[in-house]
Design a protein around this nucleic acid. Structure first.
Lengths: 246, 246
DNA sequence: CCAAAAGTGTTGAAGTTACACCCATGC
DNA sequence: GCATGGGTGTAACTTCAACACTTTTGG
């Protein structure tokens, strides 16, 4: 029987890409609406207390799995959040009382984020999550606790990382078009990027290889497929690149 | 009477600059050497458990003050470290038993760093610190716990921040020479920088103002003094600048 | 006059931005 | 034949790295 650490939690900001928009995985933890005497939805990031003997990185994976069923997702830490007031809103308190043995304890949370192919990960709610859903980042409304702040920070961290390491190249199928890759960058940075300049830069990185194959069945000039140069990818993951700006 | 949170600590990486080299503030927490039956020095970062009702940022300031007497130092978080094994070396355990009421508890620590004028802050050891000293970063030996790792991370974070915000400009006297500023950057990045290119870049930032005054009594061509343009400084602190590389 | 650090400009290479038209395909 | 997205090149500009000599002062 594992002991929970009553003072330390982990919140996971999982970003997903569906070839269109950037999404974030949220759970519905439920909220009681005293005016209408019923439960209404209250979205939150998947997060929970860690176990006493758990590594933080392990804990992040375990928490995500417990709440959404998703496994083997490498996540990166982006900060610790410890405002003692962050759990004190009335509805947050009411909720905590319903699921925690020590609801009054002050909890510091460690934030983790990752970026995955949305369609590879179909979340299945479990534990106290009533549902787990992908929500477009631009449409996220008010979240529980201080989770809007965490989401902002995670997104900054993601953008930052994208400038130094080739994260995100594993979000696409083995064969992809440069436009798909561009859309990924546009979704994350939330702005348009010049097509020609984007291609030049990506190709100069040497991280993609042109294939002979082309799209079929599209109602326009078929796009050429590319694949990742795995060696070069590993190399850049290690070394990083300084300031890949778009 | 304040309650300590047995699971969360803060470690402070305080960098200091003396117009020559980058230093880091360490405390001597003492260590018992069973072969020689006496205490030997064992350096560590200043750090301790936080109080239950303390903000993390406040806690960082308080911990630093308790151990070294230094006050009002704004610090920035650079990560959380939670390897359950990080406190498990024999000497670390022995030491923990000597000062903590729950020495076996697993502790997650939050790292904070800052950068100050070394000569403005003369540390005075207190609490369990037997002494508090400035040590050149290049000469730091083996530290307690996982503190060498924290120091590395803090230094990376400092360098990173230096590329985005004009931190470090408050480390110099109101009137300073560009060579002094350059030496600061060289110390932090631990490499030489071309004088002409450095000056050009700093001046283009618009953050310094040339004064009429010059050095006196130096056995070489006297250097011109500069001061900070406070407005421009504030502006850049807010906006940041993208990628100020040297 | 010597030592020491200050101060100053140019050039070539690389990178950045902005911008418009033709192409291949399905319907 | 038309709508759709694919694909391509250039010119102006900015940034960057590398590099050597003269100046001013104290001793």
């Amino acid at each position: 029987m594992k002991r929970l650490n009553p003072h330390i939690s982990i919140d996971c900001v999982l970003f997903g890409f569906d070839f269109e928009n950037l999404h974030v995985l949220l759970i519905d933890r439920g909220r009681y609406d005293s005016d209408f005497k019923n439960e209404i939805v209250q979205y939150a990031l998947p997060g929970d207390l860690i176990y006493m003997d758990e590594q933080l990185d392990e804990g992040a994976q375990r928490v995500l799995k417990d709440l959404t069923g998703l496994q083997n997702i490498f996540m990166e830490q982006f900060g610790a959040f410890g405002d003692p007031g962050r759990l004190s809103s009335e509805s947050d308190q009411r909720w905590l009382k319903s699921i925690r043995s020590e609801p009054e304890e002050r909890v510091v949370t460690i934030g983790y984020y990752s970026l995955v192919k949305m369609h590879d990960y179909i979340p299945v709610a479990s534990s106290f999550a009533r549902s787990a859903v992908w929500v477009p980042v631009n449409e996220v409304a008010e979240l529980a606790f201080d989770h809007n702040i965490l989401l902002d920070k995670a997104l900054s961290a993601l953008r930052q990382t994208l400038q130094t390491r080739p994260i995100g190249f594993n979000l696409l199928p083995p064969k992809f078009t440069l436009s798909q890759l561009q859309r990924l960058y546009e979704a994350i940075h939330n702005r348009d990027i010049d097509k020609r300049n984007f291609r030049r830069k990506i190709i100069k990185l040497g991280i993609v290889t042109e294939l002979a194959e082309k799209q079929e069945g599209v109602a326009h000039k078929p796009a050429r497929f590319f694949s990742f140069d795995k060696d070069r990818y590993e190399e850049l993951l290690q070394e990083g690149f300084e300031n890949f700006k778009l």
